[in-house]
């Protein structure tokens, strides 16, 4: 464990808690893409299959449980909570996210580190995580303005993956056999997807104006 990875995990945790906080306190999911949340629940479900088989550390197991419970409860809130569900704008959240699942799965079948069920599911979860934010970014594009909590949520998500890139660089130089090209490339693609959002987020923050994404 290194500081970059710990900071990355804490930032990732913060992003999920910010979202849960928003939905739980103001009982609204306005501006949040259910599709992105469903993709994230799928990412964690397919990545943490080894939750009960490979014990790595208490921290690892605890964080996996937190991510699983929080991502599925966010999906539950938006889909089934009698008040929250009313604020879900399904007419705007129209990204056909199932079109992301199949290509990621096929790619995981072809490009992976080991052709085993667990490894393929793990690789699938990596590719899916790289594109999972797309429905949310499309929704932000559509609804033009975004409220602070949503902006912070996307910002923290991007920041966590950027910190992980620093973690991979650190591990590459400190652990002789640590080479995971698949992880690095998909993590890089994911961060680049956030890059343009970051640009506009910082612009709005610097000029102290409400975030406006270009059409």
């Amino acid at each position: 464990m290194n500081i970059f990875r710990l900071a990355g995990d804490m930032t990732h945790l913060a992003s999920v808690l910010v979202l849960l906080l928003k939905i739980h306190t103001i009982k609204s999911c306005a501006g949040i893409s259910l599709k992105t949340q469903e993709l994230y629940a799928l990412v964690f479900a397919t990545r943490y299959l080894d939750l009960f088989t490979d014990y790595i550390s208490l921290y690892n197991t605890l964080m996996k449980l937190i991510f699983l419970v929080s991502s599925f409860s966010i999906v539950w809130y938006i889909r089934h909570h009698k008040i929250v569900r009313r604020s879900y704008d399904k007419d705007q959240d129209t990204f056909r996210h199932y079109f992301l699942v199949l290509p990621c799965f096929l790619l995981a079948l072809v490009i992976n580190e080991k052709f085993t069920v667990k490894e393929i599911m793990w690789t699938f979860s990596l590719y899916l995580e790289a594109v999972a934010i797309l429905p949310q970014l499309v929704l932000l594009q559509r609804t033009r303005n975004i409220d602070n909590l949503t902006g912070q949520y996307v910002f923290l998500l991007g920041a966590y993956r950027s910190l992980y890139i620093l973690n991979w660089i650190y591990r590459y130089f400190t652990e002789p056999h640590y080479v995971h090209w698949i992880t690095w490339i998909s993590g890089l693609v994911q961060t680049l997807l956030y890059a343009d959002f970051f640009y506009y987020y910082f612009q709005s923050w610097k000029n102290n104006v409400k975030l406006e994404l270009p059409a």
């Binding site: 990875r5 995990d9 990732h12 080894d50 490979d54 790595i56 690892n60 964080m63 996996k64 991510f67 793990w122 992980y164 973690n167 056999h177 640590y178 992880t183």
Partner: peptide
């Protein structure tokens, strides 16, 4: 499983 083989990151 040995550390490198299994993925130790979240």
């Amino acid at each position: 499983s040995d550390q490198l083989d299994s993925h130790d990151e979240l």
